[in-house]
Amino acid sequence: MDALVTPTADDIRTSEAFEALMWALTRPGTREPLAAPGMLPLATNLVDRETTFHATDATLAAALAATGARPAPIGAAEYVFVPLADDGDVTRAASASVGDPLYPDTAATIFAPASFGAGTALRLTGPGIRGEARLAVAGIHPSFWAARAKAARYPLGWDLYLVGEGEVVGLPRSTCVEVI
């Protein structure tokens, strides 16, 4: 018992992926670098047989199902992996759970591919942000931001991760997003 336990390669990977997710949500709008690119390392950090998920990408869905996680329709899934690139995507995503007034934590966490530095300009305010933050996002249909605002009143709402090439941006439901 006194012997030190050293982390395995897996431990280090999951710890790095989680830190990226944690800091991304803690500092909304900040581009957090990912040690391992892609959706899967982030997803397997959270998804397992105790959770439900919805993924439109068949490869990702198969990989998540292999963890024992249960696939669910978008409205019932705790972890949702969908594109938000066009109007149709946004309409589909709008049925994701915003949580229950008694249990706001049951709301969906949505992961969507995006890129940063160009595209829709957003002004962000709220917890985790000193004053305001700005973010330019491409790959997310501009109608999504209105849909997000309309979907629920805080403390209900989606917690969003925008996943780019080797980086992730978190937008918790507590963040006020304005398109500028």
């Binding site: 431990d11 950090n45 397992d48 047989r49 105790e50 966490t109 917890p127 403390p155």
Partner: peptide, 28 residues
């Protein structure tokens, strides 16, 4: 004998999930 950080991966994943929700809804 046990995992790095004592807790097994499923326990850590659960705490990770819940910690992120806690950050998303400050004070809840």
């Amino acid at each position: 004998r046990f995992n790095y950080g004592f807790l097994d991966e499923s326990a850590k994943r659960e705490i990770r999930r819940k910690t992120l929700k806690a950050i998303a809804v400050p004070g809840y």
